[in-house]
Design a protein around this nucleic acid. Structure first.
Lengths: 209, 209
DNA sequence: ATCATATTGTGAATCAACTCACGACTTATT
DNA sequence: AATAAGTCGTGAGTTGATTCACAATATGAT
């Protein structure tokens, strides 16, 4: 709803900046320069200044940025005051790992419920998250807008369709499948095999200097 | 060592193409057009043709691409005949999930060993992978060039340094830390919180049409 | 007060990737 | 043999992101 002017590349870096600013704050630092931040997050300092500048003049020339002020600003921008509840679909090895992973740590995002088809898992609670029968997805999903998809690739499309029908708008897809979803649904892929293979390919073919 | 001319964006898509071509092959398809492939992998058909063209003229006008031929070509390009052994460092929830995950499925990459500091885990075997004491890293690591890093963020830097000292050249980093590593080491970050937060941000600020 | 130093914000240049659009060629059909 | 339909490979244009480099301004020291 807000300004659609912010480049996507910038938007992807915001959560990272936010996390580091929190670190600085907890270390009691009140002031930071784009250069210092650059060393910490490994993003060019000019890029950081450019990123921040999309939100207005947040810093002071000759001084840098005030950590407190910047944090307050990002907290609002990233909607950190609002708690976002997401669903996890598919409690296999990876799905279970995410349930144990504490997404709330630096974060306003919480896995509110999980789904699986395995009778062994249905009805249990993992790290405080209840596992429902996948058959009851429609009934339980409620108002959730974001799902983490860790089902087998073979049912990725069918599951996506069900999620879409319930009004889910964004899916973080860990299956190797390239999902067919309605165009209004935003899908981010994290494909672990591809990442690993790409890394190997780069090592072999793109020697670092 | 080979041609450094291939755009990085293209290189990242190669494993994806490879996987889909294997699917086609196992379905008995012998011919495919950039358009069909585009539907499957959700990459613009012109981009696919451009990607392939970096490797020469692999297709035939008016016909498309021969699946068998293309696969053979990519197998060589992606070094699929060579088995790559990687180490997994940190057998927590996420690390254990990766051990269970069958990386070999469509893949020439194998987790050959794992390391952890938990006495409960040391000496055990998970999905056929032995878990060594992290103290013995230097001794056991052998000739491994790629590591998957799933340790706590607090020890990410120290662990990276030890890996680097043993000749590791590439790290797939799942910790939220932005690692300080020698410049000749290639690091790919997969930051799950950031991915999730970015997805939420996009949903809110970048309505799809 | 003055000066030296630090650091921002940004115009302009550069770089990387994507997409359009079409000529050239292949295959299939009549 | 001729024609229609399909598809590649790619030059050129476009878009998006990064980086350079510097004027403007703030701070801190003397």
């Amino acid at each position: 709803m807000t300004q659609n002017k912010i480049p996507q590349a910038t938007a992807k870096r915001l959560p990272l900046y936010y996390r580091y600013l929190r670190n600085l704050q907890s270390q009691g630092k009140s002031r930071v320069s784009s250069k210092e931040l650059s060393d910490a997050v490994k993003v060019d300092s000019a890029t950081i200044r450019r990123d921040f500048s999309y939100f207005g003049a947040l810093g002071k020339k000759g001084y840098g940025y005030n950590v407190e002020y910047l944090l307050g600003f990002f907290r609002k921008t990233l909607d950190q005051d609002e708690l976002i509840e997401v669903a996890l679909v598919g409690v296999g090895n990876l799905g279970a790992a995410f349930l144990h992973y504490n997404f709330m740590k630096n974060n306003n995002i919480k896995i509110a419920m999980a789904f699986d088809s395995d009778p062994e898992k249905i009805g249990t609670e993992i790290s405080g998250v209840h596992v429902y029968n996948i058959d009851d997805l429609e009934e339980k999903l409620d108002d959730i807008k974001v799902a983490i998809l860790t089902v087998p690739a073979s049912v990725a499309d069918a599951t996506t369709e069900r999620l879409a029908d319930q009004g889910v708008e964004g899916i973080l897809n860990f299956t190797p499948a390239r999902i067919n979803a309605p165009k209004h649904i935003r899908i981010h892929h994290i494909d672990l095999s591809v990442e690993l293979q790409a890394l190997v390919y780069f090592l072999k073919h793109y020697p670092l200097v």
